[in-house]
């Protein structure tokens, strides 16, 4: 006989606290899975992810790649007959996963670029030249042309411990 895993209500409570407050309302109808454009292309099943979160199966959820296949399109969230705020649950789980060090390198790089430069893409010479040709300011009037503003953004990263968080990836 197969050994059944014990539910872990402590983990479920943490999910609720982290923003997944509707997780226990789910009655597993599967409308979410049937609506999911990512699940149409992959083995990702939203219903199962929510069930694992309900049962507190931390080790099945946090290290899982499935957690990162949601495009946050909100289709399941819109259609859920129980008002389960599924994207909020996924965001709570992802925040918890990242705190445990589960983050993909391409994501870590994006996060690092924002925390260091204030933007998620770089300003290259060719971008400046094209902006100039279009009659726009070569350097956009953002943190790119305002060092004081950039300092504030960096400071927010420091205060929130964001820099430390993204240094700890695995």
């Amino acid at each position: 006989m197969a050994e059944a895993k014990e539910p872990n209500p402590e983990f479920t409570r943490k999910v609720v606290e982290a923003g997944g407050k509707t997780v226990n309302l789910c009655f597993q109808c599967g409308t979410c899975t049937g609506s999911c454009p990512s699940g149409r292309q992959t083995a990702f099943r939203v219903r199962k992810l929510v069930r694992r979160a309900q049962l507190g199966f931390e080790e099945d959820v946090l290290p899982s790649d499935d957690l990162w296949l949601c495009t946050t399109c909100f289709t399941c969230y819109e259609r859920c007959p129980r008002g389960v705020e599924i994207v909020d649950i996924i965001m709570a789980l992802r925040n918890m996963a990242v705190r445990k060090g589960y983050m993909a390198e391409p994501h870590r790089k994006v996060a690092e670029l924002i925390s260091k430069t204030g933007h998620l893409v770089s300003l290259r010479d060719e971008d400046k030249a094209l902006r100039g040709r279009l009659g726009l300011q070569n350097t956009p009037p953002t943190v790119f042309s305002d060092p004081k503003a950039l300092e504030q953004v960096k400071k927010i990263g420091e205060i929130c411990g964001f820099d430390k968080l993204i240094a700890g990836g695995k």
Binding site: W68, M103, G118, T142, D146, A149, I156, G157, C160
Partner: peptide, 28 residues
Amino acid sequence: DMQGASCCPAPGVMRSFDQTYWMSVAAR
């Protein structure tokens, strides 16, 4: 123009990573 604005920051990666940081940068 909103002088000194930054990335919103992007909801995909940044909200997924740390919602407090995401909200604070957006609030700025």
